[in-house]
């Protein structure tokens, strides 16, 4: 015997009420007790999102933030089994609905993404790291990157964490978010367009710096001069110091 439509319908009504606050009569349920389910569910969701997006919450203020959380959980059906990943769904929701337009905060999608990337990089699954040797500042060594990193491009300087700075300084920003291997701490670093593309190219598959620069030269239609090569070596040396490049194969 499978679940009857009647039982399914009752379960659906209770779940919908707990998720959206839209109340329908539920057979046999105590009206004076039902609201606790709505309250408890909302508190769980709000707690997770408050913790995930402290900067967005502070900038938006309690009321607008609550409205967003309420709207999100009502209109979006969360898919993540692991609640710690659920904040990524708020990022998708805001992006998909252009929520930022309705509240006049154009930088909101990027700010939420910035905050989510910190959570994501912090929790990236551990992978086996290859044995590496020290980088000899040679263009023809195959570089191995720290696998726990994300490179993001923003129009707003979300990393400055200030509403006025974000609104006043629309432009092109490249940010590296990476996790240190030993401390597990998440670090942020400003990149230029060139270094962002270089790291991204190196991260796609293990390759030499020369190979990566040649790929970039072809795709960007630029000549890779000796000076560019030297700058790239200096950049990689800095990345080795920071633990972004682990070494060479």
């Amino acid at each position: 015997m499978s679940l009857t439509n009647e039982t399914k319908d009752i379960q659906s009504k209770l779940a919908e009420y707990a998720r959206t606050g839209s109340k329908k009569e539920i057979e046999g349920a105590r009206d004076d007790r039902l609201h606790h389910y709505r309250r408890l569910v909302y508190n769980v969701v709000k707690g997770v999102l408050d913790q995930g997006f402290p900067i967005a919450k502070e900038i938006m203020g309690e009321e607008r933030w609550d409205d967003l959380v309420f709207d999100f959980f009502k209109r979006h059906k969360c898919q993540e089994n692991e609640v710690w990943k659920m904040p990524s769904e708020l990022v998708e929701f805001v992006d998909k609905t252009n929520y930022q337009e309705s509240i006049g905060l154009p930088y909101l999608p990027e700010l939420l993404l910035f905050e989510w990337l910190e959570i994501q990089v912090h929790g990236m699954q551990d992978v086996a790291l290859p044995n590496t040797q020290e980088f000899g500042s040679d263009l023809d060594e195959a570089l191995v990157l720290n696998p726990y990193l994300e490179i993001a491009q923003f129009q707003y300087p979300v990393h400055l964490r200030s509403a006025s700075e974000m609104e006043a300084n629309k432009g092109h920003y490249y940010l590296l978010i990476y996790r240190e291997l030993d401390s597990h701490l998440v670090k942020f670093m400003n990149l230029t367009g060139f270094t962002a593309i270089l790291l991204d190219t190196l991260g796609q598959s293990p390759k030499t710096l020369r190979h990566a620069l040649n790929e970039m030269g072809q795709s960007l239609g630029m000549e890779i001069t000796h000076e560019i090569e030297q700058k790239a070596i200096e950049f990689i040396e800095k990345m080795v110091e920071k633990g972004v490049v682990l070494g060479v194969k």
């Binding site: 039982t7 779940a15 769980v44």
Partner: peptide, 25 residues
């Protein structure tokens, strides 16, 4: 209990109707 319904996670525990069909299911 149940914590997902109509393809949406609720992230909390909702009571199941105490019924025979639910027992079988």
């Amino acid at each position: 209990s149940y914590s997902k319904c109509d393809n949406a996670h609720i992230y909390d525990l909702l009571p199941i109707p105490f019924r025979e069909d639910a027992v079988k299911h």
